[in-house]
Nucleic acid binder design. Structure first.
Lengths: 224, 224
DNA sequence: ATAATAGTGTCTCTCAGACATTATTTA
DNA sequence: TAAATAATGTCTGAGAGACACTATTAT
C-alpha cells in the first residue's frame, strides 16, 4: 500500500456540510448517523476528507451530491474549525460549508444514509457539530434578514405566500403580508412569470428569481 | 530525522494574516518580502504553518506577535483558501485571518521583516494574496459600516475627531461631524473619559471603548 | 486678537411598520 | 353562494442626512 511521508506532522482537512431544507413547513438539516468510532450511533454533519486535487468548494459539491443527488445549490463557506482536540482521533481541521437546497431538487441517493432533522429538535451531535450547526443557523437567519436568499429553498417558480412562509419558518416570526410584498418587490430580486398556481382559493401568480439581480440587498448602514 | 507517514496525501495548512493599521493618516497593511521560492522578491502576507498542537487562532496570534510584537488585537477569521494550484510547490490550504492593530501598540520585533504598505498602493503579491487582501479590505469596510470596530485601530483613548478621521480614511468618504457624533454616541459603544487632549486649538475630550458594549450595532434590516 | 480645533441642534424627507378590505377562484 | 386564498394602499412615527454657528484653547 502506498504511503505519504512528511518532515512535519500534518493535520487532515475535511469539509462538513450544514445543508438546510424546508420539510413539512419546518426548517430541517440533513444529518448522517455515524457507525464508526469516535461517536458510534451519534448523528453528525455530512462530510469527508478534502482530496488532494480538489478545491474546497469541489469537495463541498461532491459531498452535497452524494447526500442529496443534486448538482448545484446555494453554497457558501461558513467557517473553519481547528481546535486541536475537536476530534479525539487526531488533528482534523474542518472547513464548514453552508448549503440551501430546494425541496423539489433533492432526490435521495443510494449512497446516502442522511436524514432530515428539524432544526429546532436536533439531537446531541458528534464532534463539535452542534456548534457548527448553531453558527450555520445564525448565518442563515442573518442572510435572510440582510439579503434575499430565501427563494433558494423553494422550487424555481413560487408564490409570494410560499416565499413569505419560508421566511417566517426560518426567522421564527410572523410577517405582514403587505409589507413583505412591498419590500421583496422593491428589492427587485424576483420577477413575475406569466404562470399561475391554482389551488383552493384565488389562484396565485408565480414568481421566479431574477438572474440579473444582486441578491445582497443591503439595508441601511451605520456609516456613512 | 523524524518523519510522519500517512495512508493518504495530506495538504499542509497555513494561517496568513491581513494586518491593518493606520500609518501617516492612511490605511496600511503589513507585508513581508519573500526570499525563497516560489516567489522570491515578492511581497506576501505574513503567515506560517499551523502547528499540530495549536488552534488556528493561536497560530494567528503567534504570527501577529512575531511580526508586530503585540499580544492582543482585534482578530477575526476571514476565509479559507484551498484551490489545489494556489501554491506551485504543493497543496496548501490557507486559513486567512484579519487583524486590526492600534498604532501605539506595534513595536517592530527583531524577528520581523515586515513592512507597512499603503492599502491603495499595493504591489503584486505572491500566491493569491492580492485576492485575500482584497477580501480583507471589503470585510474591513463592511465591518466599519455595520458595526463599530474603528477604535481598534486607535490608542485606548482617542478623540471623536480621531475616530471620525479613521472612518474617513478607511471608507474613503467625508463624514458629517455632527451626524457622526450623534450616531457613534447613540450606539453607546464608546464612553467619555475625564481626560482631555491639548493641542493647537480647543482641547478635545478623550473617549474610550466601553467594555460592556456590544460592538455589533446592526443597522436596519430587510426583515422583519 | 486671531488662528485653530472642539462641540452643539434643527429641519426635512425617506422608509419601516401597523393596519382592513376587495378580488378571484373552487367546491 | 360560501369558503378559501390572493392582491392591494395609506397613515404615522423614527431615524438618516443636510446644514452653520458658538466655545475654548494656544500663540
Amino acid at each position: 500500500m502506498q504511503s505519504f511521508t512528511y518532515a512535519f506532522p500534518r493535520p487532515s482537512v475535511t469539509v462538513d456540510m450544514v445543508i438546510f431544507g424546508v420539510r413539512e413547513s419546518r426548517l430541517a438539516i440533513l444529518l448522517v448517523e455515524r457507525e464508526a468510532t469516535p461517536f458510534p450511533g451519534y448523528w453528525t454533519l455530512p462530510g469527508g476528507f478534502v482530496q488532494i486535487d480538489e478545491s474546497l468548494e469541489e469537495a463541498a459539491q461532491r459531498i452535497l451530491r452524494k447526500e442529496t443527488g443534486i448538482e448545484a445549490a446555494y453554497l457558501e463557506q461558513l467557517y473553519t474549525y481547528g481546535k486541536p482536540d475537536r476530534d479525539p482521533r487526531g488533528r482534523v481541521i474542518t472547513v464548514a460549508y453552508f448549503a440551501l437546497v430546494a425541496a423539489d431538487t433533492v432526490s435521495s441517493t443510494p449512497e446516502s444514509r442522511a436524514k432530515w432533522h428539524y432544526a429546532n429538535e436536533l439531537p446531541t451531535l458528534g464532534f463539535d457539530h452542534n456548534e457548527i450547526v448553531e453558527y450555520g443557523l445564525r448565518r442563515l437567519r442573518y442572510k435572510l434578514e440582510y439579503s434575499a436568499v430565501g427563494f433558494e429553498l423553494l422550487p424555481t417558480e413560487f408564490t409570494l405566500t410560499e416565499l413569505q412562509t419560508t421566511y417566517e419558518i426560518i426567522l421564527g416570526v410572523q410577517l405582514d403580508k403587505r409589507n413583505f410584498r412591498r419590500k421583496i418587490l422593491e428589492a427587485k430580486i424576483i420577477e413575475e412569470t406569466h404562470n399561475t398556481r391554482f389551488g383552493e382559493g384565488r389562484p396565485a401568480r408565480l414568481y421566479r428569481y431574477r438572474e440579473d439581480a444582486v441578491a445582497e440587498v443591503k439595508a441601511r448602514r451605520l456609516f456613512p
